[in-house]
Amino acid sequence: MGSGSERDAVVALMIDYVHLIDEDRLEDWVELFTDDCTYKILSRENVDAGYPLELLSCHNKGMLRDRVVSLREANLYNLHTDKHVLGMVRTHQESDGVWTAQANFSLYQSTLDGETDLFAVGTYRDRVVFDNGQPLFAEKIVVNDTFAVARMLSTPI
Protein backbone atom coordinates (compact mmCIF):
# COMPACT_ATOMS: atom_id res chain seq x y z
CA MET A 1 0.00 0.00 0.00
CA GLY A 2 1.33 3.45 -0.80
CA SER A 3 1.55 5.96 2.00
CA GLY A 4 -1.29 8.02 0.50
CA SER A 5 -3.69 5.14 0.61
CA GLU A 6 -2.34 4.12 4.03
CA ARG A 7 -3.24 7.57 5.26
CA ASP A 8 -6.72 7.20 3.81
CA ALA A 9 -7.06 3.89 5.64
CA VAL A 10 -6.03 5.50 8.97
CA VAL A 11 -8.64 8.22 8.54
CA ALA A 12 -11.25 5.66 7.51
CA LEU A 13 -10.49 3.69 10.70
CA MET A 14 -11.09 6.77 12.81
CA ILE A 15 -14.35 7.37 11.00
CA ASP A 16 -15.44 3.76 11.50
CA TYR A 17 -14.65 4.09 15.18
CA VAL A 18 -17.15 6.89 15.78
CA HIS A 19 -19.85 5.43 13.56
CA LEU A 20 -19.71 2.00 15.19
CA ILE A 21 -20.19 3.60 18.61
CA ASP A 22 -23.02 5.79 17.32
CA GLU A 23 -24.72 2.76 15.77
CA ASP A 24 -24.34 0.84 19.03
CA ARG A 25 -22.28 -1.84 17.27
CA LEU A 26 -19.83 -2.13 20.14
CA GLU A 27 -19.00 -5.77 19.41
CA ASP A 28 -17.77 -4.71 15.94
CA TRP A 29 -16.11 -1.63 17.44
CA VAL A 30 -13.86 -3.88 19.56
CA GLU A 31 -12.55 -5.45 16.35
CA LEU A 32 -10.89 -2.16 15.38
CA PHE A 33 -8.22 -2.76 18.04
CA THR A 34 -5.11 -4.93 18.21
CA ASP A 35 -5.01 -7.76 20.78
CA ASP A 36 -2.59 -5.88 23.02
CA CYS A 37 -4.17 -2.48 22.49
CA THR A 38 -4.37 0.34 24.98
CA TYR A 39 -7.61 2.26 25.25
CA LYS A 40 -7.86 5.11 27.72
CA ILE A 41 -10.20 7.95 28.46
CA LEU A 42 -8.27 10.61 30.32
CA SER A 43 -9.47 13.65 32.19
CA ARG A 44 -7.71 16.76 30.93
CA GLU A 45 -7.40 17.80 34.56
CA ASN A 46 -5.15 14.81 35.29
CA VAL A 47 -3.21 15.14 32.03
CA ASP A 48 -2.41 18.77 32.82
CA ALA A 49 -1.49 18.05 36.45
CA GLY A 50 0.61 15.01 35.53
CA TYR A 51 -1.53 12.41 37.33
CA PRO A 52 -1.83 8.93 35.82
CA LEU A 53 -5.45 8.24 36.76
CA GLU A 54 -7.79 7.43 33.88
CA LEU A 55 -11.55 7.81 33.62
CA LEU A 56 -11.55 4.42 31.94
CA SER A 57 -8.74 2.16 30.82
CA CYS A 58 -8.34 -1.12 28.97
CA HIS A 59 -4.95 -2.74 28.53
CA ASN A 60 -5.89 -5.36 25.99
CA LYS A 61 -8.71 -6.38 23.71
CA GLY A 62 -10.06 -8.77 26.34
CA MET A 63 -10.70 -5.89 28.69
CA LEU A 64 -12.45 -3.95 25.92
CA ARG A 65 -14.65 -6.96 25.28
CA ASP A 66 -15.34 -7.22 29.03
CA ARG A 67 -16.50 -3.60 29.05
CA VAL A 68 -18.90 -4.28 26.23
CA VAL A 69 -20.18 -7.51 27.81
CA SER A 70 -20.61 -5.69 31.10
CA LEU A 71 -22.58 -2.90 29.42
CA ARG A 72 -24.80 -5.44 27.71
CA GLU A 73 -25.26 -7.85 30.63
CA ALA A 74 -24.57 -6.17 33.94
CA ASN A 75 -24.62 -2.38 33.87
CA LEU A 76 -27.84 -0.42 34.01
CA TYR A 77 -27.21 2.93 32.43
CA ASN A 78 -28.92 5.94 31.03
CA LEU A 79 -30.49 4.89 27.78
CA HIS A 80 -29.38 7.22 25.05
CA THR A 81 -28.05 7.51 21.53
CA ASP A 82 -24.59 8.86 20.81
CA LYS A 83 -23.57 11.14 17.96
CA HIS A 84 -19.94 11.96 17.38
CA VAL A 85 -18.73 14.84 15.27
CA LEU A 86 -15.16 14.19 14.22
CA GLY A 87 -12.83 17.04 13.32
CA MET A 88 -10.13 17.08 10.68
CA VAL A 89 -7.50 14.41 11.18
CA ARG A 90 -3.82 15.23 11.51
CA THR A 91 -1.67 12.20 10.68
CA HIS A 92 1.99 11.36 10.93
CA GLN A 93 3.72 8.28 9.57
CA GLU A 94 6.14 6.98 12.20
CA SER A 95 7.51 4.09 10.18
CA ASP A 96 6.38 1.56 7.66
CA GLY A 97 2.80 0.67 8.62
CA VAL A 98 2.85 2.66 11.86
CA TRP A 99 0.95 5.93 12.10
CA THR A 100 -0.07 8.42 14.72
CA ALA A 101 -3.23 10.42 14.23
CA GLN A 102 -4.97 13.15 16.12
CA ALA A 103 -8.44 14.64 15.79
CA ASN A 104 -10.83 16.62 17.92
CA PHE A 105 -14.33 15.39 18.54
CA SER A 106 -17.57 16.39 20.13
CA LEU A 107 -20.04 13.83 21.38
CA TYR A 108 -23.73 14.53 21.84
CA GLN A 109 -26.03 12.27 23.80
CA SER A 110 -29.77 12.20 23.21
CA THR A 111 -32.28 10.77 25.64
CA LEU A 112 -35.27 8.55 24.95
CA ASP A 113 -37.34 11.74 25.11
CA GLY A 114 -35.34 13.31 22.32
CA GLU A 115 -33.40 15.81 24.41
CA THR A 116 -29.81 16.33 23.39
CA ASP A 117 -26.83 17.40 25.49
CA LEU A 118 -23.23 17.95 24.59
CA PHE A 119 -21.62 15.14 26.59
CA ALA A 120 -17.94 15.50 25.81
CA VAL A 121 -15.43 17.52 23.84
CA GLY A 122 -11.86 16.38 23.45
CA THR A 123 -9.07 14.97 21.37
CA TYR A 124 -8.24 11.52 20.09
CA ARG A 125 -4.55 10.66 20.15
CA ASP A 126 -4.20 7.44 18.21
CA ARG A 127 -1.53 5.00 17.18
CA VAL A 128 -2.52 2.88 14.23
CA VAL A 129 -0.65 -0.15 12.97
CA PHE A 130 -1.21 -2.16 9.81
CA ASP A 131 -1.66 -5.87 10.17
CA ASN A 132 -1.83 -7.66 6.82
CA GLY A 133 -2.90 -4.42 5.19
CA GLN A 134 -5.58 -3.93 7.82
CA PRO A 135 -5.33 -0.78 10.00
CA LEU A 136 -5.96 -1.32 13.72
CA PHE A 137 -5.71 0.85 16.83
CA ALA A 138 -2.69 -0.12 18.89
CA GLU A 139 -3.48 2.85 21.08
CA LYS A 140 -6.50 5.09 21.38
CA ILE A 141 -6.17 7.82 23.98
CA VAL A 142 -9.20 10.02 24.48
CA VAL A 143 -8.34 13.26 26.24
CA ASN A 144 -11.62 14.53 27.63
CA ASP A 145 -11.93 18.29 28.17
CA THR A 146 -15.39 17.70 29.64
CA PHE A 147 -13.91 15.97 32.64
CA ALA A 148 -16.80 16.90 34.91
CA VAL A 149 -18.71 13.94 33.55
CA ALA A 150 -22.46 14.50 33.36
CA ARG A 151 -24.33 11.71 35.13
CA MET A 152 -22.09 8.78 34.13
CA LEU A 153 -19.67 7.46 31.58
CA SER A 154 -21.25 4.31 30.20
CA THR A 155 -20.76 3.88 26.47
CA PRO A 156 -17.28 4.64 25.10
CA ILE A 157 -16.32 8.10 23.92
Binding site: E45, Y51, P52, L53, A148, V149, R151
Partner: peptide, 9 residues
Protein backbone atom coordinates in the same frame (compact mmCIF):
# COMPACT_ATOMS: atom_id res chain seq x y z
CA UNK B 1 -2.07 10.88 44.81
CA UNK B 2 -3.11 9.18 41.59
CA UNK B 3 -5.54 11.77 40.28
CA UNK B 4 -9.07 13.09 40.19
CA UNK B 5 -12.42 12.36 38.68
CA UNK B 6 -15.52 14.51 38.64
CA UNK B 7 -19.13 13.64 38.17
CA UNK B 8 -22.08 16.01 37.86
CA UNK B 9 -25.40 14.63 38.89
Amino acid sequence: LLGYQRQRI
